[in-house]
Nucleic acid binder design. Sequence first.
RNA 1: GGGCGCUUAGCUCAGCGGGAGAGCACUUCCUUGACAUGGAAGGGGUCAGAGGUUCAAUCCCUCUAGCGCCCACCA
Length: 881
Amino acid sequence: MLDKTFDPAAIQAAIYESWEKSGAFACHPDSAAQPYCIMMPPPNVTGSLHMGHALTFTLQDILTRYHRMKGRDTLWQPGTDHAGIATQMVVERDLEAEQSSRLKLGREKFIERVWQWKAQSGGTITRQLRSLGASPDWSRERFTMDEGLSAAVRRVFVQLHREGLIYRDKRLVNWDPKLHTAISDLEVESRETKGSLWYLKYPIEGRADEFITVATTRPETMLGDTGVAVHPEDERYKHLIGHYAVLPLVGRRIPIVGDEYADPTAGSGAVKITPAHDFNDFEVGRRHNLPMVNIFDRDAKLNDEAPQAYRGMDRFAARKQIVADLEVQGLVAKIDPHTLMVPYGDRSGVVIEPWLSDQWYCDAATLAKEPLAAVERGDTVFVPKSWENTYFSWLRNIQPWCISRQLWWGHQIPAWYGPDGAVFVAETEAEALAAAAKHYGREADLKRDPDVLDTWFSSALWPFSTLGWPERTRELQRYYPTDVLVTGFDIIFFWVARMMMMGCKFMGQVPFKTVYIHALVRDERGQKMSKSKGNIIDPLDLIARYGTDALRFTLTALAAQGRDIKLAESRLEGYRNFATKLWNATRYAEMNGCQRVAGFDPANAKLTVNRWIASAANAAGARVVAALEEYKFNEAADALYQFTWGTFCDWYIEFSKPILTGSDEAAKAETRAMTIWVIERIVHLLHPIMPYITETLWKHIAGESAVMLITAPWPQTSAAADEAAVAEMEWVVNLISAIRTTRSEMNVPAASELAATITEIRPEARGWVETHGEQIRRLARLKSIATGASADAKTALQIVVEGTTVLIDVAGAVDFAKERGRLQKEVATVRAELDKIAKKLGNEQFMTKAKPEAIEEQRERQSDYEATLAKLTAALARIGA
RNA sequence: GGGCGCUUAGCUCAGCGGGAGAGCACUUCCUUGACAUGGAAGGGGUCAGAGGUUCAAUCCCUCUAGCGCCCACCA
């Protein structure tokens, strides 16, 4: 016998283990089945499960489980990302605690140490994925620094370099002065900051007491100024173009140039130009051949290019000092408060400094061409489609991708330098040496480039590197291109677009046919959850309190397209209760001896109730399938919830009670078989969303030896509804509802009057009421259903009586006047509705232009309301109003 | 500055050219033999505001207000 409630914590681990051990997660590259493949976006190896993971992996698991049950050969490819900066930071923090450091250890030892860390702590996220019930093929788990994936990285790098799509360049990069590395535009987070706008006066050379005033938010960079720009048509400054200003504190002569970049309406209209420390100024400097003076070192402290007094100062300390010094000289015209966007490193949290350095770049603009065309052609479809705009706009304006990082943890760039600085890019050192020998005509000492690649470089290869590329493995041929990529929009740029580039380039095909973009899970204020904001809801905590299934169902039900998810805990409670409800329905079946009947075919059912529920179960199944095929996860969840609770438990189980306690053995047998058949059906349909409870119940009803639900075939859903049964049950349901609605009519304790009432509402039931008058009388007292019904009509009426008997007691307690008021109000409402409909039906244009169905619908509503009105009027008359 | 999205019951959210929905919360009643993590009944909404299109608008269009997100080099 099942317990009264479902205890997820007690069974989850064991069930998961039995799935994993059975090999149910594995793909079968040799099978004849049609493949279905999803690439798991590899979580950071440093990561732990957060709400965003919970959502994305739940949705992926639903698709995986659904297609697996549908008979596809599914591969959900799991793995983790080495997460360059993040991982290096974690290990460095550990070292710091031991009074050690990366530099003390040296590169080789440090990397060893990171691998050690990975071996010990790197499995956190994958363990947590298991508690979420995820069913990827763990036997194929990959890590972006695996030998195979690293080989793929080298191959790609070398080939792109050979084609000129990877090159070295000296440009401004986003420099992180804390982590001492370049970071990409995407890793920079702009934060609105209150600051000041300083108006500085630069003396004009050769014109005493004449100044040009520039406005800046970063006065300290003036030490690196090599020019001043004004708009060529700006009347205020036109005459100064071609003259020189003298840079205060430094004394450098700097030209005043005309450039359209200078906006006459902004600031003072004149802009100081610091080509080495500002992306715009870099461009302006380039146009006018201005020298680039780099005044910062790697810590963003002032270097020897700055005047003696400021050397070694931090940039923000220097700012204060410089402003103070300028004020002394009377060169600060004014200071306005100013709100500006300041770039911060999303990892380090410090202000990013545009800094001039040598880096490796990838020609993203060229690589983006084919991915753009592929989506335009529809080779890859975004769901929802509107995200294609985001994708397009980013790829169309894409900048060179800085792929080198000054870190130790990552894929070291396969480039070696000769004594004269010549670069040799090769997959191995041996090849590089050979190339160098050929180049120099003798053997040469080579030094490897110390930098590593941006983490996203290796993740960009994920859809094919995990399948064995560059080898032409059978997995690669079978599963690429993959079916769908499921991810949040926050990594369309980081990842999706780059996978598209690399996939198109190296596989000649897009990596996925569909990209499903889901919402982000936000906190109750609609903010993105993040560690730094401290607004994280821990999915593991929710799993512990409500069970994995409840969490999964909640996320699924909220995963509507195009809207972010604000998680409310009350939802979890509700869906936990849903699990309990299903659990107890099964318990009911068990208590009533419902067992699976071999060869039972619901299509052969005789009783109307049974034919009806079978039909309804089919309809629900069809809705689930339709929803999942369109990635409308919430609709699938909704259909299951409504059917299980609202149809099966609320109505069918109640209908089954009088039958199962009755004496018609044939009817009982059929109803028992049907009850368990429906539960079986629910358990199948629900399994992708709620795997644990369904597997548990399945074991219970099918026996330990049965094939596990995870690999069970998805039920066939027949399209045709049993319209006769549906119509008849609708009749019953409506009748019961009518009785409930006009329950004051039942305000008569005597059973004989009850019989009269039933007869009044449904004259056709008169015969039955006459024969069963005695029973009704008894029922009224006992509040339970008597035995003896076998035919459908009788069953139906028994149900009516059951509903009625309860109502009699209720109605008996109802205050008469209150009831009358309520009835009168209802009458008014119904009359208003009737007026509206009559008006509509009397509208000539409606009658000519509306669809025939719409008109028919209105007519039906009209007669429904008229019937209701008649009943209400009769009820009012009865109670003497 | 550009782009996208949102505004529906007290809360969290579905829905959508012809009857305003769910869950939770609330009110009343019910320890009935699956389930009190339950059952029954009920209250609560000019579907943000203003215009327009239409026989008909919560839904389509325009504008306004508020909120959110993404992108962007504005000194």
